[in-house]
Structures are given as C-alpha cells and as structure tokens.
Design a protein around this nucleic acid. Sequence first.
DNA 1: GCAGTTACGCTACGGGGCGTAGCGTAAGGA
DNA 2: TCCTTACGCTACGCCCCGTAGCGTAACTGC
Lengths: 209, 209
Amino acid sequence: MLSRSHPKPLRTGRPRSAAADEAILEATRASLVDLGWSKLTMGDVATRAGVAKTTLYRRWAGKNELVVDAVAVLFDELEMPDLGSLSADVQAVVLQFAALLERPETRTALMAVVAESTRDEALRTRIRDSIVDRQKRLVLQGRQRAQERGELPVEEDEEAASATADLIFDVIAGAVVHRALVSAEPIDADWARRFTALLLAGLEAAASS
Amino acid sequence: MLSRSHPKPLRTGRPRSAAADEAILEATRASLVDLGWSKLTMGDVATRAGVAKTTLYRRWAGKNELVVDAVAVLFDELEMPDLGSLSADVQAVVLQFAALLERPETRTALMAVVAESTRDEALRTRIRDSIVDRQKRLVLQGRQRAQERGELPVEEDEEAASATADLIFDVIAGAVVHRALVSAEPIDADWARRFTALLLAGLEAAASS
DNA sequence: GCAGTTACGCTACGGGGCGTAGCGTAAGGA
DNA sequence: TCCTTACGCTACGCCCCGTAGCGTAACTGC
C-alpha cells in the first residue's frame, strides 16, 4: 500500500476543479429532492451540475458513493448544544435529527444507501465514516457533559462504557429514524420530551443498580 | 370506489394460479438472497419462478410491491411468547426480530422498501398493513400480558396509552434495526438483556411518576 | 516558452432492464 | 358449447449504465 492517498507529493497536470465537485454534490441534492433516490440518474446529475457524465465517474464509482457524499455534509449541521441539563440536550439533539430527516434529500437517501450497504462492505465503511460517526460523536459529547454536571456516573470499565454508549446511540438514532421513516409520524417537541424521559429514566435506574 | 377488492362476486374465466403466486414470491426471496435488492430484476424473478414476465406484471405493479409481499410473510414468524415476565418476553421478541434481520432477504429488502416508501404513499400503506402492523401487534400483546401480571399499570387515558405504545414500538424496532443494519453489530443475548433492562427501567420510572 | 501530465467536454456505443402490445393457447364458468 | 379471463411467448421502444476515444484546457517543471 503506497501512500497514494496523500495528494500532496508530486501533483502535476491539470488539477481537479473544486467548483465542479461542489456543483456536482449540490446537483445531487437537488436531484434527490426532485426525483428521489430511485429515479435519480448519473446523467441527470451531470446535466444539472453542468459537467460531463464522465467527470462524475472520474470522482465517484457510482450512484451510491455519490449520494453518500452529497448527503454527508448535511450531518455537519448536527450539534450538541449545552442547555444546562442532559434532558434538554437530548431533546434538542432529537429535534435536530428529526428536522434533518424531514428534508426530502435525507429522507429518500438515508435508508436507501443503508440498504445498499448491507451488500457492500466498502459502502458501509464510507457511511460509517462520513455519517454515522458524526452522530455518534454527539452521544459521547453529551455523556461527557452529563458526567461533568454529575448527572451520569463515570463508568470505570472502559469496555462497558463503550458498550453503553453504543446502546444509547442505537436507541436514540434508531427510535428517531423509525418514528420518522417507518411509522411516518411527526416528531414534535412533545414526542421528544416523552422519549427523552423514557431514555433518561432508564439510564438513571441502570446507573443506580 | 367499487368493491373490486373482493374477488367473490361474479368471478368468471380462468382463475389465477395460486401455485404461480407462491412460486413467484418464493423466487423473489431467492433472488433477494442471491442478488440483493438493487440487482434484483423482474425478468430474473420470472425465470426463477418458471412464469412469464407478463404474469408478474398482472399481479404486481413493480419491484417494490412484489418485494414487500415476498418479505411480509416472513414477519408472520414473529410471535410474542409468554415466558412469565415482561423482561423475558421483550428479550425473546428482540432476539426473534434480530434473527429475522440476519436473513439476507430481509436485510437487503426492508430498508430498501422503506426508502422507496418515502416517496410513495401507496407503498407506505402497503408496508404498514403487511409488515409494520404485524410487529406493532406484538407490543400491544406484550403490554396486555404485563398488565395482567401487574408488571405494568393500566393507563386510563386511551389516547395516552396509544401514544405510549407507539413510542415503545419505535424504540424497540428502531433500536434493533439500527443496531443490525446501521451499526452492523451483532445482536446477541447480552445486548438484548441490556437493552431490555434500559427500556423496562424507563417504563417503570415513568409509571411511578 | 515548451514538453509532459492530468482533467475536462463531447460523442458514440454495447449491454441490459423496464413495461407493454399483440397473439395464440389453456382453464375455468354459465 | 360459448364466454371470459389467465397464461406463455415474442418483440419492441425507451431509458439508463458505464466506458472508449478524441481533441482541448489547465497547470508544472525544465
């Protein structure tokens, strides 16, 4: 494995257009909104972006990878606020995540690429790195703050702590996604409040046991 | 809306082959296993089932509807056992659901059709009727038994009770699906135990408040 | 400047799936 | 037996995929 990943050393020839990159990703999101995942085509994206179809294939292997990258940046909007209590923080994140899932781009793309990833290890890694880990970071951040406030105990066993964080992450993200996309019911402040109450009550009980 | 749904009245001519129906659904599941959702084609399913492609289109509008029906029957396997305690019952259902998601047919198909349903109201209804409601029934059944055992209080407000059941359903199904397909981590007895402990502790705390 | 290297736009193409039309045949019901 | 509907089969136009080939554009090192 030569260090081919670093584009630094010995770059010669015409550089890739950064403007084209952004235009393509923007066009991809627009096409997702207008056409949805299944009817989105590489040709349509190329036309919208004002580039040749071959230019897309020089950067992305196919529709899957392209859409993951196009949607990933939207997850940068997610932030863990510091509202003074774990309950308020969790509710805020839940509502943020729900708002993201309200957007037609993410709605149609997220489940589709996850479905594809069940048969594509490389795609799963790409999703994990560019989307899932960004969400997971929020859980770790929230726990950190809660521990500083004394709302959550500091777990000694690092392995157990990691497993707990994974569990909480699956519960939060899973419940929100399921509510939004499967049950197709609105996620309002009231739902966020009731969900958070359920989750935190479970955590407290588990901590005191 | 004439009562076209009931095939009873005035059925004349050659009846549809029930054997063909089953052969097609079985072929669809086999094709899902071999090819996955994205590479599954109507032509391939027809060939496997030993029927003409036109026969498929006489029964299903397209790939989405066909796959939903093919996978839906697998969800009939889900059953709420009566193991004597709510905790044991929930753990058992979680493991059952996880086992279902281990199967390549459901793995590749479930998220894909849900993704499609975000832009197809009719498909969403179909999924709800043939898949989601079958799972939801288990939650209601489990609550019923837990109330009979005295493990859960009987909620007076019917609307609040329904909202709680919906919440629990989204938490359980969402967490299991997220763990299995997004985090792509194994769901073993230990995870089921820890998840159930978290959920039930939250429920008890909410009930006593 | 000039040569070398890489990116880009464009065209064209084979391959394959989609969904339907049309036809002759098969299987039930009145 | 007639009527009606389902079935198998063939053929088709349509669209998308992913790539090859070519001339041009942009940037680097000499």
